[in-house]
């Protein structure tokens, strides 16, 4: 741990977070603590603010009031702080966002060299290690457009994890995939969870939540409506909105 406190600070600590787009308030007084090693799943209807919430953590979105700390470091708008936080936080996007003009190998190795200062050889070795982990080392020389959606998303995961972040954020990682490719991506995420990675996952994959999550959060209209371990969350939801949402996604 970077801090010398008695107990390690939480991986993510969000207090009193409010965000507006103009007059529209998209996050209402959100409080959320993700402990080290915790696997958090965030679900909710579209427009509920779940993507916006995790995008505020690495400053892809700003916010008007409240506080975010990543491993004890308070997020401000100062370049040095934002860059440090982005080094601690990895992110996987719904649309993969691989760099189409670079090969799979270059996609992973370029940020390792530019951000982590690795040599070309070190970056290649580390990339190949993580490509093996997502089980596509043989695709290293290909361009993203030559891969299936599932393969592209696995490369995107390898690219983020190779940076060795303390926390991984997933923004609907399987929503843009064909059904038969969802599993290969979820399998990689399960393996990552089993290794003890701290994860915050925005997803509609309730099977994944059941299998992996320590805690499930349900958001609606910019608020955290309900949260709990998956067993109670799925079997005994308290709020009507959670029940209605679960009815829709589970059947």
């Amino acid at each position: 741990m970077t801090s010398a406190q008695d107990s390690a600070p939480p991986a993510i600590q969000i207090t009193g977070l409010n965000k507006w787009y103009g007059l529209l308030q998209v996050l209402h007084d959100v409080n959320l603590t993700v402990t080290q090693g915790e696997r958090l799943v965030i679900c909710g209807p579209s427009g509920s603010g779940k993507s916006t919430l995790i995008r505020t953590v690495n400053a892809l979105e700003g916010f008007q009031s409240g506080e975010i700390k990543v491993a004890g470091l308070r997020l401000t708008r100062e370049p040095a702080v934002v860059e440090e936080i982005r080094r601690r936080v990895g992110m996987v996007f719904q649309q993969f966002n691989l760099f189409p003009h670079l090969t799979v190998l270059e996609n992973c190795a370029l940020p390792l060299r530019l951000v982590r200062g690795l040599s070309a050889a070190e970056a290649r070795d580390r990339t190949m290690h993580y490509l093996s982990k997502v089980r596509i080392p043989e695709q290293a020389a290909k361009y993203p457009a030559q891969l299936s959606g599932g393969q592209q998303q696995r490369v995107a995961i390898a690219r983020a994890v190779a940076m060795q972040p303390e926390v991984m954020l997933f923004d609907e990682p399987t929503s843009a995939l064909d059904p038969e490719m969802v599993k290969e991506v979820l399998d990689v995420m399960v393996a990552l969870a089993d290794e003890g990675m701290t994860m915050a996952v925005v997803t509609h994959e309730m099977g994944f939540a059941r299998q992996v999550a320590d805690r499930v959060i349900f958001m609606d209209a910019g608020r955290i409506v309900e949260q709990g371990p998956p067993t109670t969350f799925f079997t005994a939801p308290r709020s009507d909105r959670t029940k209605a949402f679960l009815r829709q996604v589970l059947h």
């Binding site: 892809l60 860059e83 982005r86 992110m91 996007f93 649309q95 966002n97 760099f99 951000v115 690219r159």
Partner: peptide, 27 residues
Amino acid sequence: IPKGQWEAARALGMRPVSVMTRIILPQ
């Protein structure tokens, strides 16, 4: 070039100048 390219590169910690010269301009 779609915004996602900029976001992905920035989220990986790349500096603005690098993002421009290595990711956005080549595309």
